[in-house]
Amino acid sequence: MTSHANNMPLEYKTQQSQMNILGFWVFLGAEIVLFSTLFASYFVLEHNTAGGPTGQDIFILKDVLIETFLLLTSSFTCGLAIHSMRSHHKTGLMVWTIVTLLLGAGFLYMEINEFIHYVHEGASIQTSGFTAAFFTLLGTHGAHVTFGIFWISLLLIQLARRGITEKTASKFFIASLYWHFLDVVWIFIFTFVYLKGMVM
């Protein structure tokens, strides 16, 4: 079922790959709705601190900035990985993907530390409406990053075994869409949770 368009990149070569990629875009559409709901609920509840700490009380902007740099850089290296893939450079794809995952793991490490810090400050998920919405929004994003690290690790094994084929290429491409999407969500979190929380 090879497509007639031969000048397409490798990941778009078969009809099934094209459908997989389109299907993943539609899935990301559903993810946008999911995160929009989490954000909207957060905006409803963010001032309901019920006498517990507010965002301003507990946020440490320096750590959040480091997390942001880690994740944004990982999105860049993820792009480099796909760039290597397009030029059939297996080692490049491998190395840049591993760098991406390491940066992602660094982000997760910082975020978990941040959460522990908040709990010590008396802001656990059970404290108030604000903390419930905050931890759920951040936690859902963090869980996505965690899932992505495990998923892409599996893809690396497949890449090592099979090399860059039509199938592995479309898998890596889809994983890269996912990774960039998490970055986009983080930009909204950084802006509308942390920055807004520090000023308002």
Partner: peptide, 16 residues
């Protein structure tokens, strides 16, 4: 897990 999204106390909001 005892969170407060929709409870009346502790800053939840049933209308949500």
């Amino acid at each position: 897990f005892g969170t407060h999204f929709f409870t009346v106390a502790n800053g939840g909001d049933p209308m949500l």
